[in-house]
Computed example of a mutant assay.
Amino acid sequence: MIYKFVDGGEAPVLLDLALVRAVLEPHDVGDPQLTVGEEGGLEFWVRASDGSEAEIFADAQGVVVHRPHAGGVWGIVAELVSRLGAVIIDPSGAVVVCQAEEHAHLPAGMQDDAIVIEMTGEAVEAALLGPRRP
Results as ranks from 00 to 15, higher is better:
Ala54Asn: 11
Met1Leu: 15
Phe57Pro: 00
Ser49Phe: 13
Met110Thr: 00
Tyr3Ala: 06
Leu17Tyr: 12
Pro68Arg: 12
Leu34Gln: 05
Gly71Phe: 09
Leu84Ala: 03
Leu129Gly: 03
Pro26Glu: 06
Ala11Leu: 14
Val96His: 03
Val20Met: 07
Gly8Gln: 07
Gly40Asn: 10
Val20Thr: 13
Arg21Lys: 15
Ala22Gly: 04
Ala78Val: 05
Leu19Asn: 09
Tyr3Val: 01
Leu17Arg: 15
Pro26Trp: 06
Leu128Cys: 10
Leu34Ala: 13
Gln111Arg: 14
Glu55Ile: 01
Ala123Val: 03
Gly71Asp: 09
Asp28Lys: 09
Cys98Gln: 05
Leu15Ile: 12
Ala126Trp: 02
Asp113Ile: 00
Asp7Lys: 15
Ala123Tyr: 02
Val6Ile: 06
Glu122Ile: 04
Ala126Glu: 07
Glu122Phe: 07
Arg67Gly: 07
Ser52Ala: 10
Asp31Tyr: 10
Ala58Pro: 10
Gly130Asp: 04
Pro26Asn: 08
Glu118Ala: 15
Ala123His: 01
His69Thr: 08
Asp112Tyr: 01
Glu102Phe: 06
Val13Ala: 08
Ala94Gly: 09
Leu15Phe: 13
Gln99Arg: 15
Cys98Thr: 01
Phe5Glu: 00
Gln111Gly: 07
Gly9Val: 01
Pro68Asn: 08
Asp28Tyr: 06
Gly93Thr: 02
Pro68Thr: 11
Asp16Gln: 12
Ala126Leu: 08
Gly72Lys: 11
Val13Cys: 12
Gly40Ala: 11
Pro26Ala: 05
Asp31Ser: 05
Val46Asp: 09
Glu39Trp: 15
Gly85Glu: 10
Ala11Ser: 10
Met110Ala: 13
Thr120Leu: 14
Ala22Glu: 13
Gly9Pro: 03
Ala104Lys: 10
Val46Tyr: 12
Glu55Lys: 09
Arg83Gly: 02
Ala108Val: 02
Val87Gly: 09
Val116Arg: 00
Thr35Asn: 14
Pro134Lys: 08
Val63Cys: 04
Pro12Phe: 02
Ala48Tyr: 06
Gln61Leu: 03
